[in-house]
Design a protein around this nucleic acid. Sequence first.
DNA 1: GCGCTAATTAACGTAAATGTTAATGATTGG
DNA 2: CCAATCATTAACATTTACGTTAATTAGCGC
Lengths: 107, 107
Amino acid sequence: MTTVIKAFSALSDQTRMSIVEQLMTEGELAAGDLIEGRGMSGAAISRHLKVLREAGLVRQRVQGTHRLYTVDGHGLRAIADWTISKRAFWEASLDRLDAAITLEDQA
Amino acid sequence: MTTVIKAFSALSDQTRMSIVEQLMTEGELAAGDLIEGRGMSGAAISRHLKVLREAGLVRQRVQGTHRLYTVDGHGLRAIADWTISKRAFWEASLDRLDAAITLEDQA
DNA sequence: GCGCTAATTAACGTAAATGTTAATGATTGG
DNA sequence: CCAATCATTAACATTTACGTTAATTAGCGC
């Protein structure tokens, strides 16, 4: 399985997607913090985190008994790489996305 | 399931990914053409195409008994939208990807 | 060292995905 | 209209994914 397919696969699950988004918004968090509000056991979250690690989407840092998680750029860059390489197929319609990236690049 | 998760899910399968890439490279193709070289029955490909359609990644056009497929920008734009919105998390390292998008925008 | 907490891993059950072959639907050519 | 072709859908078997609870591993504080 290629890197980008592994990343797509990891993010094709709602729980894992929400974990990544939470880490992006809130920064480094312990595994335990990621359990709350998801209506799921810690064991389940732990395995989701393993999938995300193996896809290069999150990194784990050990501190005492805690495992602190952050977003890992590797998996995201694989997605960005793929997306940019296919740009011709989504930029055509000149919509708000196209505008968005143009604005960002001008800034 | 959100649009982007549906797109990630559709592209998390090697066969479906290769179908999309083939349509990008070769343009419009009949369902039958997409079976060849994949070592898989037409029925299996047909269902993969259904998944891709439902994810907004390919479009189907009927011509006689043939179903002609092309890439659909909708699913791709959902991915591009997500990717761009998370740009801060993959552009940080200022690597070749960052250079690539900059070059494209200058062009 | 012992107990407590944090987290992961093991064992297991169920649901979803993916392939097969067979059957069905739809269009074309003679 | 009948047969042939293209494609999809149906029915089925098998594998993979995802959740649970229980057991295990690891560090901290007393």
